[in-house]
Amino acid sequence: MKLLITLLSLTFFSCNDHHHSSLKEKLHKLDQSMGGKGPVESEQILKDRLDDFSYQKSRWNKKNDFYVLERFDKFKIGKCQQCHDSSKKIPNSASNHKEVSLLHANKEVMNCKTCHNTKDTWNLHMLNNEKVSINHPYKLCSQCHFEQVEDWSHGAHGKRVGGWHGKRVIKNCTSCHNPHKPQFHNQMPKVTPNFLKYKR
C-alpha cells in the first residue's frame, strides 16, 4: 500500500516538468515564436507621463532608438547669453565663474577649457574640437567614460523616465551627475530599517 502511494506520488511529481526548464530555454523558445519582435504596442499607455518631459532623439545607439532629456532649460545659474553676448566684451579672467569648483579629474587632466569654449558658450567641444550640444553631453563624457556611456545607451547605467514600456526616454549624464562635481552625496537613509527593532 505504501509502495503504491509512493509510486502514485512519483508520477504526480514527475509531471511538473515545466518547473525545471531553465529561464534561458524559455526565453529562447519565446523569442523564436515571436520572430524576434518585441511586445505589441497595444496602446499609448505612457503618452501622458512623457508629456511632462522635453526630450530629443539620440543617435548614439544605431541599433535601438532612444531619447534623452533636454538639459538646456535646467540651468540654475542663468542663461549663458546674459553675459556671453557677442556685443559685450568680457574680460578674460580666471576669476570668472568662481562659484563653479571643478572637482572632476585632477588639474593635469582637466580644466574648464577641456569641455567649454569661451567663444562658443552655447556648446561644448570634444578633444578634436568638434562641437557638442549641451543636450547631448554624453558624447563628451564618452571620451573618458566610454564604458559607462556604452552601458548607459543600452540601459545598464542611468535612469529611464516614463516607464518600462513605449518610447525609451532616458536621463542625460548631466541630469544626475554635476559635471563639475560628479560624486554622489552622503545622506541618512530615508527609512529606519524594519530589522532594527529586533537588534539588541
Binding site: 543600452h154 535612469k159 529611464r160 518600462w164 544626475c176 554622489f184
Partner: peptide, 21 residues
C-alpha cells in the same frame, strides 16, 4: 532610485534594457 541602480523591463523584448544587462 536616485542612482539608477534598479532596472526593470520585459525580458522577452530583445531590445529591452534588462535583456541587455
Amino acid at each position: 532610485c536616485p542612482t539608477g541602480a534598479r532596472v526593470f523591463g520585459n525580458i522577452l523584448d530583445p531590445n529591452s534594457e534588462i535583456r541587455y544587462i
